[in-house]
Amino acid sequence: MWRALASNMLTLLVVGMFLLGGLILWGQSQYKAEGPLETAICLQVKSGSNMTGVSRQLEDQGAISSATIFRMAADYTDKAQQLKAGSFLIPEGASMAEIIDEITRSGASTCGTEIEYRIGVTRTQIRVRELDPATLEFVEIASFVVGEEDAPEIYQEKRNNPDTRYRVSVAEGVTSWQVVEGLKAVDALTGEVAELPPEGMLAPDSYEISPGDDRTALLQQMQDKQQARIAQVWETRQEGLPIETPEEMLILASIIEKETGIPEERGQVASVFINRLRKGMKLQTDPTVIYGVTKGQGVLGRGLRRSELRRATPWNTYLIDGLPPTPIANPGLASLRAAVAPDETDYVFFVADGTGGHAFAETLQEHNRNVAKWREIEAERSGSGN
């Protein structure tokens, strides 16, 4: 009898072990398998949350098939205590393993709200955006111009959200003074700027920041990036160019940046100035004259006066030979590249053509015809009130 009972118990134990092993294998397969989520979601993990609550949240949102397996897996992999607070993008079909990795890895939010401070040539704008998990694109929910409009309530609401991310975007062609003034409006930053960075030495780009970051440290990051770009682009320069140093390249690139906002024109504009330098012609470019008037501090806001075109300044390229002594703005990477790899043309003139672009010419006669057309367009616009 005892022998039979022992045999039966042994059989049950073996069967139980097989069942347990099968259950573990099934659980492992569920843990690594593609999840049931049909559309990406933004999972918000509040401060003080635990893995039990998050697993239920994920199950309720249809992101996982079993909260129990999710919790057990988190415990088994020693990640249950590594849960981070934040907003996390959970992609369509994400496995439990991928989700656990996402919410325990770094704590950096990957979705939710972003506040962007856009420093432009004429204004600084603040935009509040939300990431749409379905399209993986940010959707603007509010915006306002610093100094011109009051901040909407939602801006302050999102500023107080610990999951909100912050970004400073610097437009191509802004001056160093404009960047510093724009950073003063970034209330997520701290610290005073004691010294204005050299003109041209701040890289236009988008920079992710954190509340409490120092303004001077961010400016140094911009300078480091611009210095790296200058060194990189200078190594790719064409042979025989009439610019001899990276500093001259930077000056020329800043002029190209201010002369055209059309990407495909940069090479042509660069060719005009390169050809003029080769021929010993004065550059005669209005943006340099404007810089001599404003010193980069603000926007002129009107056309140049004849007296200003005749006024002697180090930047008046109607009077000086060659390049001005400093850049007149912070050029982007594309303008730096155009300065050392201009299009091969015989153009030495260009003028606005009324479409936002320019008409280029090889001879003064052709240029005068283009100027006459532009004057007609200006007169028509003035007469129609445009």
Rank of each mutant, 00 (worst) to 15 (best):
R302K: 11
I24Q: 13
C111K: 04
G298Q: 00
G261R: 10
G16D: 01
V45A: 02
G35M: 02
D78I: 04
V139S: 12
S47Q: 15
R305P: 02
P263C: 03
E181L: 02
M281V: 08
R167C: 06
R337S: 11
L277F: 04
V233C: 00
Q30R: 13
N8Y: 14
Q156Y: 13
R129G: 00
V272K: 04
V299Y: 10
Q156F: 12
V351P: 02
E199D: 07
L202W: 08
T326G: 07
E235S: 14
D214M: 03
A217P: 00
S335D: 06
E195S: 14
S55C: 11
L12G: 08
T104V: 08
T313V: 07
W374T: 05
E259M: 07
S55Q: 08
I90Q: 03
I100P: 05
L319S: 06
V174Y: 03
A270E: 06
K279H: 08
V299P: 01
L196P: 03
P133G: 09
M9G: 10
G261M: 07
I41F: 11
E140C: 04
A67I: 08
S210V: 11
V145M: 05
V371L: 10
G212M: 00
E192L: 02
V170L: 00
E362Y: 07
V233R: 04
I230T: 07
E265W: 02
Y291H: 07
L304A: 05
F88R: 02
R118Y: 13
I230L: 14
E140M: 09
L196Q: 07
E92I: 05
Q284E: 15
R237E: 00
T313H: 06
A359H: 12
S106W: 07
E244P: 02
V179F: 02
S384T: 13
E157D: 14
L196E: 03
K373H: 14
N368P: 01
A171C: 07
A188M: 01
S106K: 09
V371C: 05
P204C: 08
L336T: 05
S65W: 04
T216M: 02
R215H: 06
R118I: 07
W177H: 14
K295R: 15
V233K: 01
F18N: 08
G298D: 02
V121Y: 10
N370D: 14
I274T: 00
F18L: 15
G383I: 00
G267F: 01
A312R: 13
V54L: 10
V54H: 01
I141S: 12
P197S: 05
L89C: 01
E130G: 05
T135S: 15
